[in-house]
Computed example of a mutant assay.
Amino acid sequence: MIAYLGRRLIQSVLILLGISLITFALLYLLPADPVRQIAGRSATPATVESIRRQLGLDQPFLVQYGRYLWNLLHGDLGRSYIQRSEVAQLIVARLPATLLLMVGAIVCELAIGLTMGVVAAVRRGSNTDQSLMVASFIGVSAPQFVVGLLLLYVFAVRLSWFPIGGYGTFSHLVLPSLTVGILGAGWYARMMRSSMIDVLRQDYIRTARAKGLARVTVLMRHALPNAILPIIAMIGIDIGILMGGIVVVESVFGWPGIGQLVWQAIQRVDIPIIMGITLVSAFAIVLGNFLADIIAPFIDPRIKLR
């Protein structure tokens, strides 16, 4: 276990290092000039060059990247060019809202997707199976802003069950989580159906049925724990995606998460914020996959960490 954790730690550091290098290089090659955004249109060339020197943007690429890594090792994500605040503080301020939406969305994805997948697998080839798979395809294909606006119109405007937007209470969380959850549920349903069908063909399922165990017991106790293993890996990926923020959903519902912050940063070419949120999202994906690997052996003892 210790050797495995050590290898995974080294791999994680290398992955994050590679992501930081690629992201920094792409932002360095951008045709847009962040100094012009800071200085304004009326700034003189002398003012622009002065700001460029102050920010160290006149240095070669390797010098800039090396300085960024050195600051990163000391926990410094940099300072926003536009907002004049520490990037870490800006991210931490938006983090609670993002985490709340992430948890709510994953709960909705699992509740809807796993239920659809299991029912479709059990009734494979029936009208129910086909209807659920069509519904999952529609959920995956539907644009988020369309789903969000439709939910707002029905449940907030017409029925007045939930607030139109904002943040702070459980009622504010329901519609944004459901919007994200409907999209993810389609993927989970299709994955769960495929995995469950494969498991239901196994010999130990036939043996459990031959022993006279109830159908629900066979499904919940023997089939589901093995079929759910691919879903755990998907959750690890979802954590990183949702941590990066969902710009469309946050905009539709006025949700003050990281997505809005990074979108504003992209519009203003605020490189420190873009780098900071990219690394936080990458770290979340790495951490999510690591936790998924750790949890898997507890669900299926046949899996060994090596």
Results as ranks from 00 to 15, higher is better:
Ala284Met: 11
Ile295Thr: 09
Met220Gly: 12
Leu73Gln: 08
Gly117Thr: 08
Thr98Cys: 05
Thr278Pro: 00
Gln59Glu: 14
Ser136Lys: 10
Thr179Pro: 10
Ile274Cys: 04
Ala296Ser: 13
Tyr81Met: 07
Val248Ala: 13
Thr44His: 01
Pro34Leu: 02
Val249Asn: 00
Met133Ser: 01
Gly166Tyr: 09
Ala39Ile: 06
Thr169Phe: 06
Met116Val: 11
Ser177His: 07
Leu69Pro: 04
Arg41Gln: 14
Gly125Lys: 10
Gln130Leu: 13
Ala208Tyr: 00
Leu229Met: 08
Thr217Leu: 11
Pro34Tyr: 02
Arg52Thr: 13
Gly148Ile: 07
Ala208Glu: 03
Gln89Asn: 14
Pro176Tyr: 01
Ser85Pro: 01
Ala93Thr: 12
Val180Ile: 15
Met275Thr: 11
Pro272His: 02
Glu49Phe: 12
Arg209Gln: 15
Ala88Glu: 12
Ile239Asp: 03
Gly165Trp: 07
Ile232Ser: 07
Ala210Glu: 09
Arg67Gln: 15
Gly254Val: 03
Ser50Asn: 09
His222Ala: 06
Tyr4Cys: 12
Leu219Met: 15
Thr169Lys: 10
Arg36Tyr: 11
Gln267Ser: 14
Ala3Asp: 15
Ile231Arg: 02
Leu114His: 08
Val157Ser: 14
Arg94Thr: 03
Val280Phe: 15
Leu178Phe: 05
Asn71His: 07
Gly288His: 10
Val174Ala: 06
Ser42Tyr: 14
Glu250Arg: 01
Ile19His: 03
Ser281His: 00
Gly125Ile: 12
